[in-house]
Design a protein around this nucleic acid. Structure first.
Lengths: 139, 139
DNA sequence: CATCTGTTTCGATAAACGTCAATATAGACG
DNA sequence: CGTCTATATTGACGTTTATCGAAACAGATG
């Protein structure tokens, strides 16, 4: 499978670089990425924004995926091979299925090195989600 | 079902609330989820933690719910009546269904005042979710 | 009381989801 | 080459979800 249409559109809208001038830029700025949407408390999301944002939250809406994600995110070196994290109580194919979902949502990236496949967190997307949930000063 | 000892400890560590005014409420809001948990990048979530956390993310994993939530969260005064936010492209019953889900996840609270029902954001839960997504290892 | 308006619940349905067993692919190693 | 190991895909199956129309409920007002 190639990159999902959803993912591609997300990057188009959220990070205007890449498509236009990614050819010459090696994408080195990880965390100054502009979040795709303002905090949820700032203004109502448009229908389109909510569609896009829901994909990211949905990726973390499953217990197994949440565990896999935290296993990768907290792994020394910032990445983990599938063999390191596949002991979460479901079958191998199911682990693969969930990792694929996380990848399609843009939360993880994968790379094969020899026998093993390594997954690592896409830091900018995580930061963008965190920014969505920043709370106002009241409380 | 009552809170397990583990749950109670989490509850204590993460935020002290709800103990004082819980007695007047019967079991009307039983499935309120205690928000909690360390950043996803800090250490792997346990099975139990991931089950609990997934409920919160699942609440925001639907476009309509995300929109409803941002409509409430960004509404002047910090609350909105259903009539103010029900123009999101789905039927009335569906709006009610989604608001109920958000309430069950602990993200919204509701109160009837006369003819209208008002929903407001549960700020501590929002902050807890934001804390979960703090950026991965800044080295 | 009767009625109107706003909101929720109920019943049904189609779509999406999570899971596994079986199968396929990719690379390592003889 | 053949085989072994590590991941991924496929197909099937049961469960959950989002949605609506109809009906019920709650409160205001006549």
């Amino acid at each position: 499978m190639t990159a999902s249409p959803t993912l591609t559109r997300w990057f188009d809208m959220c990070q205007h670089r890449r498509m236009s001038n990614a050819l010459s830029l090696p994408v080195l700025e990880p965390d100054v990425v502009e979040p795709c949407c303002p905090p949820l408390t700032e203004r109502p999301l448009t229908a389109e924004e909510s569609e896009r944002t829901a994909v990211m939250f949905k990726a973390l809406s499953d217990p197994v995926r949440l565990r896999l994600f935290s296993l990768v995110a907290s792994h020394p070196g910032g990445e983990a091979c599938v063999c390191d994290i596949s002991d979460v109580g479901v079958s191998g194919p199911t682990v693969s299925f969930h990792l694929k979902k996380l990848k399609q949502a843009g939360l993880l990236a994968s790379e094969r090195r020899g026998t093993w496949v390594y997954y690592r967190v896409e830091p900018s997307v995580l930061a963008a989600m965190g920014a969505l949930l920043t709370s106002p000063v009241r409380a």
